[in-house]
């Protein structure tokens, strides 16, 4: 349970962080005339932030446990999610 709460908190912090990192004053820090491999820093920053958010969400989403989900109709549960959940449950069991 504690894990589940923690994951939720991480997910919330992630979106909050994403939103804050996208607006001034943070974003202004990178809006300077500087290039990396010829590409302006601000572009690297924004796309890097974006990529980070995508990857972090990818890693996080797999682990989020949707406990209070309604009864799914037969066979609707996606296979990947299923396996993931079982793994996490097993891990929790071992601890």
């Amino acid at each position: 349970m504690a894990d589940r709460r923690k994951l939720e908190n991480i997910a919330f912090t992630l979106s909050l962080f994403g939103a804050i990192a996208m607006v001034p004053p943070i974003i202004s820090l990178f809006n300077v005339e500087k290039t990396i491999f010829g590409v302006p820093l601000i572009i690297i920053y924004l796309f890097g932030l974006w990529l980070f958010l995508i990857i972090a969400t990818f890693l996080l989403s797999k682990r989020m446990i949707n406990e209070d989900r309604p009864n799914l109709e037969e066979g609707e549960k996606s296979g990947a999610g299923n396996i993931e959940e079982i793994n996490i449950e097993n891990m929790e069991g071992k601890e």
Binding site: A11, F12, G18, I43, L46, I54, T57
Partner: peptide, 29 residues
Amino acid sequence: LEFLAIYLGPTIIFVGWWFILRKLVRIGR
């Protein structure tokens, strides 16, 4: 870079899918 904002807004919402979208979808169903 203004066009990026059009994409970044939805990104925030989808990164936080657990909070708003999940509830919306659950209610919808």
